[in-house]
Amino acid sequence: MTDYDAYYDDRHDGHDGAPAGEADRTDREHGMTRRQLMRHAGWFGGAVALTVAGGEVISQIAGSRGSTAEAAAGAAAAGSGTLRFVQVSDSHIGFQGPANMDVAGSFTEAVDQVNTLGFRPDFVMHSGDLTHLSTAGQFDQVKQMMSGLKTDRVFTVPGEHDSIGDAGRAYRRTFGTGTLGDGWYSFDTHGVHFIALVNTLSLEKLGHLGNDQIDFVRKDLAGLPSDTPVVVFSHIPLFAMYPKWGWSTDDALKVIALLRRFSSVTCLNGHVHQLFTKTEGNITFHSATTTAYPLPKPGRAPAPTPQVVPARQLKDALGIRSVGYRQGDRELAVKDQRLA
Protein backbone atom coordinates (compact mmCIF):
# COMPACT_ATOMS: atom_id res chain seq x y z
CA MET A 1 0.00 0.00 0.00
CA THR A 2 1.34 3.45 -0.93
CA ASP A 3 1.27 6.45 1.38
CA TYR A 4 -1.43 7.97 -0.82
CA ASP A 5 -3.58 4.86 -0.52
CA ALA A 6 -3.18 5.04 3.23
CA TYR A 7 -4.69 8.53 3.24
CA TYR A 8 -7.92 7.06 1.94
CA ASP A 9 -7.80 3.75 3.85
CA ASP A 10 -11.26 2.90 5.16
CA ARG A 11 -9.70 1.61 8.35
CA HIS A 12 -9.29 5.24 9.38
CA ASP A 13 -12.77 6.49 8.55
CA GLY A 14 -13.89 6.65 12.19
CA HIS A 15 -16.04 3.50 11.99
CA ASP A 16 -13.50 0.89 13.01
CA GLY A 17 -14.14 1.24 16.70
CA ALA A 18 -10.95 3.15 17.46
CA PRO A 19 -11.28 6.42 19.37
CA ALA A 20 -10.90 9.53 17.26
CA GLY A 21 -7.58 10.43 18.88
CA GLU A 22 -6.18 6.97 18.18
CA ALA A 23 -7.32 7.13 14.55
CA ASP A 24 -5.69 10.53 14.17
CA ARG A 25 -2.43 9.25 15.63
CA THR A 26 -2.48 6.30 13.22
CA ASP A 27 -3.11 8.50 10.18
CA ARG A 28 -0.50 11.00 11.30
CA GLU A 29 2.11 8.32 10.67
CA HIS A 30 1.22 8.74 6.99
CA GLY A 31 1.51 12.55 7.15
CA MET A 32 -2.18 13.43 7.55
CA THR A 33 -4.71 13.19 10.36
CA ARG A 34 -8.23 11.87 9.80
CA ARG A 35 -9.66 15.32 10.40
CA GLN A 36 -7.29 16.77 7.81
CA LEU A 37 -8.34 14.02 5.41
CA MET A 38 -11.99 14.97 5.81
CA ARG A 39 -11.10 18.58 5.06
CA HIS A 40 -9.22 17.49 1.94
CA ALA A 41 -11.93 15.15 0.67
CA GLY A 42 -13.50 17.40 -2.02
CA TRP A 43 -12.87 16.01 -5.52
CA PHE A 44 -14.61 18.16 -8.10
CA GLY A 45 -15.35 21.86 -8.36
CA GLY A 46 -14.97 25.10 -10.25
CA ALA A 47 -12.61 28.04 -9.90
CA VAL A 48 -10.42 28.39 -6.81
CA ALA A 49 -10.00 31.91 -5.46
CA LEU A 50 -6.81 32.66 -3.54
CA THR A 51 -5.96 35.64 -1.35
CA VAL A 52 -2.51 36.61 -0.14
CA ALA A 53 -2.57 39.14 2.69
CA GLY A 54 -0.13 39.72 5.50
CA GLY A 55 1.63 36.42 4.88
CA GLU A 56 -1.64 34.47 4.80
CA VAL A 57 -2.96 32.48 1.84
CA ILE A 58 -6.71 31.82 1.84
CA SER A 59 -8.55 29.93 -0.91
CA GLN A 60 -12.10 28.86 -1.64
CA ILE A 61 -14.13 27.54 -4.54
CA ALA A 62 -15.73 30.40 -6.43
CA GLY A 63 -19.44 30.95 -5.95
CA SER A 64 -19.47 29.62 -2.37
CA ARG A 65 -20.75 31.26 0.78
CA GLY A 66 -18.59 31.27 3.87
CA SER A 67 -19.37 31.81 7.54
CA THR A 68 -19.69 35.27 9.06
CA ALA A 69 -16.15 34.98 10.40
CA GLU A 70 -14.84 34.00 6.97
CA ALA A 71 -16.70 36.89 5.37
CA ALA A 72 -15.19 39.28 7.90
CA ALA A 73 -11.73 37.89 7.17
CA GLY A 74 -12.33 38.37 3.46
CA ALA A 75 -13.44 41.96 4.04
CA ALA A 76 -10.31 42.63 6.08
CA ALA A 77 -8.19 41.12 3.31
CA ALA A 78 -9.67 43.58 0.83
CA GLY A 79 -7.55 46.41 2.20
CA SER A 80 -4.59 48.08 0.60
CA GLY A 81 -1.72 45.82 -0.37
CA THR A 82 -3.84 42.68 -0.63
CA LEU A 83 -3.37 40.30 -3.55
CA ARG A 84 -6.29 38.18 -4.68
CA PHE A 85 -6.22 35.89 -7.66
CA VAL A 86 -8.14 32.96 -9.09
CA GLN A 87 -6.97 29.57 -10.34
CA VAL A 88 -8.99 27.59 -12.87
CA SER A 89 -7.78 24.33 -14.35
CA ASP A 90 -8.41 21.50 -16.75
CA SER A 91 -11.23 22.94 -18.83
CA HIS A 92 -10.52 20.38 -21.60
CA ILE A 93 -12.35 22.41 -24.24
CA GLY A 94 -13.13 19.98 -27.06
CA PHE A 95 -13.71 16.95 -24.85
CA GLN A 96 -16.70 14.83 -25.86
CA GLY A 97 -17.91 12.02 -23.66
CA PRO A 98 -20.46 10.94 -21.07
CA ALA A 99 -18.35 12.27 -18.15
CA ASN A 100 -19.38 15.78 -19.24
CA MET A 101 -21.45 16.37 -22.34
CA ASP A 102 -20.87 20.14 -22.25
CA VAL A 103 -17.39 21.11 -21.04
CA ALA A 104 -17.75 24.49 -22.71
CA GLY A 105 -20.90 25.09 -20.70
CA SER A 106 -19.28 24.14 -17.40
CA PHE A 107 -16.26 26.32 -18.15
CA THR A 108 -18.59 29.21 -18.96
CA GLU A 109 -20.18 28.63 -15.57
CA ALA A 110 -16.74 28.76 -13.95
CA VAL A 111 -16.05 32.07 -15.70
CA ASP A 112 -19.38 33.36 -14.39
CA GLN A 113 -18.39 32.24 -10.88
CA VAL A 114 -15.15 34.18 -11.10
CA ASN A 115 -17.06 37.25 -12.22
CA THR A 116 -19.46 37.05 -9.27
CA LEU A 117 -16.92 36.53 -6.49
CA GLY A 118 -17.64 39.97 -5.07
CA PHE A 119 -14.16 41.26 -5.92
CA ARG A 120 -12.10 41.80 -9.04
CA PRO A 121 -9.17 39.34 -9.06
CA ASP A 122 -5.76 40.83 -9.70
CA PHE A 123 -5.27 38.01 -12.19
CA VAL A 124 -6.61 34.60 -13.23
CA MET A 125 -4.30 31.63 -13.78
CA HIS A 126 -5.36 28.63 -15.86
CA SER A 127 -3.11 25.76 -14.79
CA GLY A 128 -3.28 23.66 -17.93
CA ASP A 129 -5.27 21.37 -20.18
CA LEU A 130 -7.08 24.38 -21.54
CA THR A 131 -7.98 22.18 -24.53
CA HIS A 132 -8.47 18.47 -25.01
CA LEU A 133 -6.78 17.94 -28.38
CA SER A 134 -4.69 21.13 -28.81
CA THR A 135 -6.33 22.16 -32.09
CA ALA A 136 -6.22 25.75 -33.28
CA GLY A 137 -10.01 25.97 -33.01
CA GLN A 138 -9.99 24.76 -29.41
CA PHE A 139 -7.27 27.25 -28.43
CA ASP A 140 -9.21 30.07 -30.08
CA GLN A 141 -12.38 29.01 -28.29
CA VAL A 142 -10.86 28.88 -24.81
CA LYS A 143 -9.04 32.18 -25.37
CA GLN A 144 -12.30 33.83 -26.37
CA MET A 145 -14.07 32.36 -23.34
CA MET A 146 -11.38 33.61 -20.98
CA SER A 147 -11.64 37.09 -22.50
CA GLY A 148 -14.91 37.30 -20.56
CA LEU A 149 -13.09 37.13 -17.21
CA LYS A 150 -13.37 40.36 -15.23
CA THR A 151 -9.71 40.70 -14.33
CA ASP A 152 -6.73 42.74 -15.44
CA ARG A 153 -4.55 39.80 -16.48
CA VAL A 154 -4.92 36.15 -17.47
CA PHE A 155 -1.97 33.77 -17.20
CA THR A 156 -1.68 30.15 -18.34
CA VAL A 157 0.60 27.13 -18.24
CA PRO A 158 0.18 24.23 -20.69
CA GLY A 159 -1.10 20.77 -19.90
CA GLU A 160 -0.17 17.63 -21.80
CA HIS A 161 -3.45 17.93 -23.72
CA ASP A 162 -2.24 21.34 -24.93
CA SER A 163 0.88 19.78 -26.44
CA ILE A 164 -0.49 16.89 -28.48
CA GLY A 165 1.43 16.25 -31.70
CA ASP A 166 3.47 19.47 -31.85
CA ALA A 167 5.41 19.82 -28.55
CA GLY A 168 3.22 22.76 -27.57
CA ARG A 169 3.85 25.00 -30.59
CA ALA A 170 0.14 25.75 -31.19
CA TYR A 171 -0.27 26.55 -27.50
CA ARG A 172 2.67 28.96 -27.55
CA ARG A 173 1.36 30.69 -30.69
CA THR A 174 -1.82 31.51 -28.76
CA PHE A 175 -0.60 31.93 -25.18
CA GLY A 176 3.19 32.14 -25.31
CA THR A 177 3.75 35.86 -25.82
CA GLY A 178 6.41 37.13 -23.44
CA THR A 179 7.46 33.67 -22.23
CA LEU A 180 10.88 32.05 -22.37
CA GLY A 181 12.05 28.69 -23.72
CA ASP A 182 9.08 26.35 -24.06
CA GLY A 183 6.71 28.75 -22.33
CA TRP A 184 8.00 29.35 -18.81
CA TYR A 185 8.12 32.79 -17.15
CA SER A 186 7.95 34.66 -13.85
CA PHE A 187 6.44 37.90 -12.56
CA ASP A 188 6.06 39.91 -9.36
CA THR A 189 3.07 41.64 -7.84
CA HIS A 190 2.09 42.79 -4.34
CA GLY A 191 5.43 41.65 -2.96
CA VAL A 192 4.90 38.04 -4.14
CA HIS A 193 7.10 36.32 -6.72
CA PHE A 194 5.37 33.98 -9.18
CA ILE A 195 6.97 31.32 -11.38
CA ALA A 196 5.07 29.49 -14.13
CA LEU A 197 6.66 26.20 -15.19
CA VAL A 198 6.14 23.79 -18.10
CA ASN A 199 6.45 20.10 -17.20
CA THR A 200 4.28 18.49 -19.88
CA LEU A 201 6.46 18.38 -23.00
CA SER A 202 8.73 15.38 -22.37
CA LEU A 203 6.18 12.90 -21.11
CA GLU A 204 7.16 9.28 -21.20
CA LYS A 205 5.53 8.59 -17.85
CA LEU A 206 6.16 11.47 -15.46
CA GLY A 207 6.27 15.22 -15.83
CA HIS A 208 9.65 16.67 -16.70
CA LEU A 209 11.18 20.15 -16.44
CA GLY A 210 14.60 19.78 -18.06
CA ASN A 211 17.94 21.46 -17.39
CA ASP A 212 17.19 24.69 -19.28
CA GLN A 213 14.11 25.37 -17.20
CA ILE A 214 15.81 24.43 -13.92
CA ASP A 215 18.63 26.85 -14.80
CA PHE A 216 15.98 29.52 -15.43
CA VAL A 217 14.54 28.95 -11.95
CA ARG A 218 18.00 29.08 -10.36
CA LYS A 219 18.81 32.43 -11.98
CA ASP A 220 15.30 33.76 -11.39
CA LEU A 221 15.45 33.11 -7.64
CA ALA A 222 19.07 34.11 -7.12
CA GLY A 223 18.47 37.75 -6.23
CA LEU A 224 15.37 37.31 -4.10
CA PRO A 225 15.48 37.72 -0.30
CA SER A 226 14.56 34.53 1.56
CA ASP A 227 11.49 36.19 3.11
CA THR A 228 9.89 36.77 -0.32
CA PRO A 229 6.66 34.74 -0.67
CA VAL A 230 6.98 32.50 -3.74
CA VAL A 231 4.11 30.88 -5.67
CA VAL A 232 4.86 28.27 -8.34
CA PHE A 233 2.37 27.19 -11.00
CA SER A 234 2.66 23.96 -12.98
CA HIS A 235 0.25 21.55 -14.58
CA ILE A 236 1.59 18.24 -13.26
CA PRO A 237 2.30 18.12 -9.50
CA LEU A 238 5.81 18.93 -8.34
CA PHE A 239 5.48 16.29 -5.62
CA ALA A 240 5.09 12.53 -5.94
CA MET A 241 1.31 12.44 -5.66
CA TYR A 242 0.92 9.13 -7.54
CA PRO A 243 3.81 8.33 -9.91
CA LYS A 244 2.12 5.15 -11.11
CA TRP A 245 -0.34 7.37 -12.98
CA GLY A 246 2.23 9.97 -13.97
CA TRP A 247 1.11 12.33 -11.20
CA SER A 248 4.62 13.50 -10.39
CA THR A 249 7.57 15.33 -11.98
CA ASP A 250 10.77 13.31 -12.26
CA ASP A 251 13.23 16.18 -11.76
CA ALA A 252 11.11 18.41 -9.51
CA LEU A 253 13.40 17.87 -6.52
CA LYS A 254 16.02 20.05 -8.23
CA VAL A 255 13.56 22.96 -8.19
CA ILE A 256 12.31 22.13 -4.69
CA ALA A 257 15.91 22.33 -3.44
CA LEU A 258 16.13 25.87 -4.83
CA LEU A 259 12.90 26.83 -3.06
CA ARG A 260 13.72 25.54 0.39
CA ARG A 261 15.53 28.68 1.51
CA PHE A 262 12.32 30.71 1.18
CA SER A 263 10.12 31.00 4.25
CA SER A 264 6.83 30.69 2.34
CA VAL A 265 6.38 28.68 -0.87
CA THR A 266 3.06 27.64 -2.40
CA CYS A 267 2.95 25.27 -5.41
CA LEU A 268 -0.32 25.16 -7.35
CA ASN A 269 -1.02 22.50 -9.99
CA GLY A 270 -3.83 20.99 -12.02
CA HIS A 271 -3.83 17.67 -13.93
CA VAL A 272 -5.30 15.39 -11.23
CA HIS A 273 -8.85 16.83 -11.34
CA GLN A 274 -9.28 16.72 -7.56
CA LEU A 275 -8.43 18.72 -4.49
CA PHE A 276 -5.41 17.62 -2.52
CA THR A 277 -3.00 19.40 -0.19
CA LYS A 278 0.45 18.38 1.00
CA THR A 279 2.88 20.30 3.19
CA GLU A 280 6.62 19.66 3.40
CA GLY A 281 8.29 22.10 5.75
CA ASN A 282 7.97 25.58 4.26
CA ILE A 283 6.47 24.32 0.97
CA THR A 284 2.76 23.66 0.48
CA PHE A 285 1.37 21.89 -2.59
CA HIS A 286 -2.24 22.35 -3.68
CA SER A 287 -3.73 20.22 -6.47
CA ALA A 288 -6.65 22.00 -8.11
CA THR A 289 -10.02 20.74 -9.11
CA THR A 290 -11.38 20.79 -12.67
CA THR A 291 -14.17 22.39 -14.67
CA ALA A 292 -14.50 19.38 -16.98
CA TYR A 293 -14.86 15.93 -15.40
CA PRO A 294 -13.68 14.08 -12.29
CA LEU A 295 -10.87 11.54 -12.22
CA PRO A 296 -10.69 8.66 -9.74
CA LYS A 297 -8.72 8.82 -6.54
CA PRO A 298 -5.33 7.17 -6.97
CA GLY A 299 -5.42 3.41 -6.63
CA ARG A 300 -9.22 3.25 -6.84
CA ALA A 301 -9.32 2.47 -10.58
CA PRO A 302 -7.05 0.77 -13.13
CA ALA A 303 -6.23 4.12 -14.75
CA PRO A 304 -7.04 7.85 -14.43
CA THR A 305 -9.93 7.85 -16.88
CA PRO A 306 -12.89 10.29 -16.84
CA GLN A 307 -15.44 9.27 -14.22
CA VAL A 308 -19.13 9.30 -15.09
CA VAL A 309 -21.46 10.43 -12.32
CA PRO A 310 -25.22 11.05 -12.58
CA ALA A 311 -25.82 14.41 -14.24
CA ARG A 312 -27.79 15.65 -11.25
CA GLN A 313 -24.78 14.99 -9.02
CA LEU A 314 -22.14 16.76 -11.08
CA LYS A 315 -22.91 20.23 -9.74
CA ASP A 316 -23.73 18.81 -6.31
CA ALA A 317 -20.08 17.69 -6.15
CA LEU A 318 -18.82 21.29 -6.36
CA GLY A 319 -17.03 22.28 -3.17
CA ILE A 320 -15.55 25.10 -1.12
CA ARG A 321 -12.00 25.24 0.17
CA SER A 322 -10.70 27.78 2.66
CA VAL A 323 -6.96 27.67 3.33
CA GLY A 324 -5.14 29.76 5.93
CA TYR A 325 -1.35 30.02 5.90
CA ARG A 326 0.98 32.25 7.90
CA GLN A 327 4.68 32.57 7.25
CA GLY A 328 6.61 30.28 9.55
CA ASP A 329 3.71 27.90 10.22
CA ARG A 330 4.23 24.23 9.39
CA GLU A 331 0.55 23.33 9.03
CA LEU A 332 -2.35 24.65 7.00
CA ALA A 333 -5.87 25.37 8.24
CA VAL A 334 -7.91 23.72 5.48
CA LYS A 335 -11.66 23.32 5.17
CA ASP A 336 -13.40 21.60 2.23
CA GLN A 337 -17.15 21.14 1.90
CA ARG A 338 -19.63 20.63 -0.89
CA LEU A 339 -21.86 23.33 -2.31
CA ALA A 340 -25.03 21.19 -2.50
Rank of each mutant, 00 (worst) to 15 (best):
L259S: 12
T108F: 00
S322I: 06
A333E: 13
E280L: 13
G148Q: 15
L314H: 09
D5K: 08
G183A: 07
F239V: 10
Y7D: 07
G223N: 08
A311Q: 13
A72M: 13
V230K: 03
K150D: 15
W43I: 04
G137D: 15
A6V: 00
L221G: 06
A301C: 05
K297E: 09
L201P: 01
M1L: 11
E160W: 06
T108A: 15
H40Y: 10
S67H: 02
S91E: 09
P229H: 13
F276N: 14
R261D: 04
W245M: 00
G94Q: 00
G324N: 15
H193T: 11
K278A: 08
V57Y: 14
T177S: 11
A73V: 14
D166I: 09
T289P: 00
Q144T: 11
Y242V: 00
E204G: 07
A170S: 11
H193Y: 12
K335D: 15
I320L: 13
T26F: 10
K297Q: 05
K244G: 14
T228C: 07
R172T: 06
S287F: 01
T108I: 00
R25A: 14
G66R: 07
G66A: 09
G63V: 06
V52H: 15
G319Q: 13
G183H: 02
T305V: 12
A196T: 04
H40L: 12
E29S: 07
A301V: 02
G74A: 10
D9F: 03
V114F: 04
